[in-house]
Write a protein that binds this DNA or RNA. Structure first.
Lengths: 356, 356
DNA sequence: TGTTTTTGCACAAACGTTTGTGCTAACTAT
DNA sequence: ATAGTTAGCACAAACGTTTGTGCAAAAACA
């Protein structure tokens, strides 16, 4: 049987309100005697009382639950962030409702609606794209909200993003310095914040270094594996194939590697590659993989911090936009076409930079 | 402002109960006129009414929320399963509350308690260990529950597990057939179901093939990366180091690779390795990695199917225990010591089997 | 002893739903 | 015209909490 305050009230003889106050540690405030307190505590423990959080949430308008909207939990990058968010929220006493949008805007809208109905106390959202009416509505509810990984400029919302522009710029520029001029990118989902920024960084890096932008070298439209596979096949079959490919996500890279393996292309002699996102196994691949790593830990931690902070100080009027730095890790998968002996003295070197 | 039934009641002039019935599509049953229905629908839509799921849950004793307990979402294996569970549940109209236990039994107990209080309609649990009083209590609540990935024999609960015993047995036996007799394992967390079964499979395979079990070759006690690193270092430093290492998880393998790389050990010439869990990048590693893959898709799908089924037929008395098969994928990281020229003709071969 | 203060608790409303039941007016049948 | 049906809706209780307020008895004070 499920134990309610009423049960305890009956067996102890005290009223429901008294029981409630004791169990909520409000005995002093409401002048409940120590004796009474002891009796109620004992009985509650004995019967294994558990507050009904639905009733409580209804009454208090507070559920101690945060809604997390993520595009794809199975993507290691997002999985990692989810893990951290969950961890930090737990420390703060919050539960997590997770929903996966699969990069589908309608699912996102639906799921956010559902979370709203469930009365979550705050939102951490990695939005799919640029459609944002539903998020705008959310802001009016004045529940804390932070946009993660993907910003929506038009919205006055808290947000935490990585400097995708610089990340892509530096990776591209590094390839250029290594003597590459036919540099292809395999994009993720177009019109997402991250993708747009990365493309912009790529283009600017080329332009700033006097290399013509060839739209044929810009392929793909999805952060997933299949896109990496197909796009790579396409690129390799070109009449004038690229000497370097920049993949915009770990999963794209996975597909790319599959295609490369099938086509028997040698890395880095035939082709240089670099990937966005940390890939745990990167150092141990056939050709250790250069990557642009994003500070996952920071992202997760910052998200929770910002959210909690806003819950505490309801007054906090100004929204904050936080820009985190990425890090370029050069490994052997990038060939330096300038060095005659392909010495690659910069093996494993890490280029650090500070965010703007 | 938040719109309630009461609001709609006020502006339309109909009672709250009538509004409720209309919006719940019970107009016929309660003989609400078509005109009334139309008016209420229109107003509800206009005002953007959203039912308060807390109130509803309280009244209905049903929240359409499932609680998922997972040891470590950042582990790709669990992330993948989580993703699938979320996906299938969404299709069935359920939300997901996720909690991470970090393999800590107390966190597990706490979190399950919290979920209970939040009134979830069912549980999918990957328990940390063999302590199970709290789960036993859960069973008495007669909410649907399925144990995933890790069984607890003593409990009469639904459960879906992979045949870890056979998976480990076959991998070990394969190594033996390849001529190895100093085969080490790096265990995951001891006294978890999965680990116990794998150790048992390993031991039986050795015994059945006339190889003495050397406890020195059994190391480790954690499914995470650090364990893989340290344990590998230990093994490599032995006076009589193993010729093959069997890592019990993807993350352990990651740490192992790091250690191997640092120690400049050559795979597979100096050492053969094989890993439990699918690793997406396995084929593209310096030495393509042999693995025992578990059917993630099936695990996730089966979990939800079983849960939903039990929600539908409350009568379902008998609990079901489902055993899924694993699959051994042989790659070059396992050297066949018998074949003189290390031809490894079985490159990429997949050994399939059916579960008992 | 009479008045005031304090102690210790109970009552009841409210949070937003759902649903069994009851009531009035209109309709149908005789 | 009268009795019986039915259509159309409202009332109120219940789900399990929390919290403002009220009230009696005890204690303190004069």
């Amino acid at each position: 049987m499920v134990i309610t305050l009423e049960e305890i009230s009956k067996v102890t003889g005290f009223s429901v309100s008294t029981v409630s106050r004791v169990l909520n540690k409000k005995s002093k405030k409401y002048r409940i005697s120590n004796d009474t307190e002891r009796v109620i505590y004992a009985k509650a423990k004995e019967l294994g009382y558990r507050p009904n959080e639905l009733a409580r949430g209804l009454r208090l308008k507070k559920t101690h639950t945060i809604g997390l909207v993520v595009p794809d939990i199975s993507n290691p990058f997002f999985a990692s962030i989810t893990h951290l968010i969950q961890k930090y929220l737990y420390e703060e006493g919050y539960s997590l409702i997770v929903c996966n949008t699969n990069e589908d805007i309608n699912t996102e809208i639906e799921q956010i609606d559902l979370m709203k109905r469930k009365g979550v106390d705050g939102y951490i959202i990695m939005p799919v794209g640029t459609q944002y009416e539903h998020i705008k509505d959310l802001l009016d509810d004045d529940k804390p909200l932070v946009l993660l990984d993907r910003n929506i400029d038009a919205l006055d919302a808290n947000c935490i993003v990585v400097d995708n522009y610089r990340g892509a710029y530096e990776a591209t520029e590094c390839l250029v310095h290594f003597g590459h001029d036919r540099i292809a990118i395999i994009q993720g989902l177009q019109n997402t914040y991250t993708n747009n920024e990365r493309v912009r960084g790529y283009k600017d890096a080329l332009a700033d270094n006097g290399i013509r932008i060839d739209e044929n070298y810009i392929v793909g439209n999805d952060f997933r594996r299949e896109n990496g596979y197909i796009s790579t096949k396409l690129l390799l079959k070109m009449e004038n194939p690229p000497t370097a490919i920049f993949a915009f996500s770990d999963l794209i890279t996975l597909g790319m590697l599959q295609a490369i393996s099938e086509e028997k292309v040698k890395i880095p002699d035939d082709l240089s590659i670099i990937s966005f996102d940390e890939i745990d196994f990167a150092p141990y691949l056939v050709s250790p993989l250069a990557v642009v790593v994003q500070p996952r830990e920071l992202i997760g931690e910052a998200a929770v911090k910002l959210l909690i902070e806003e819950m505490r100080n309801k007054n906090s009027s100004g929204k904050r936009k936080i820009l985190l730095e990425s890090k370029l890790v050069i490994r052997e998968s990038m060939k330096n076409l300038n060095s005659t002996a392909n010495e690659n003295s910069n093996l494993g070197v890490t280029v650090h930079r500070t965010a703007s």
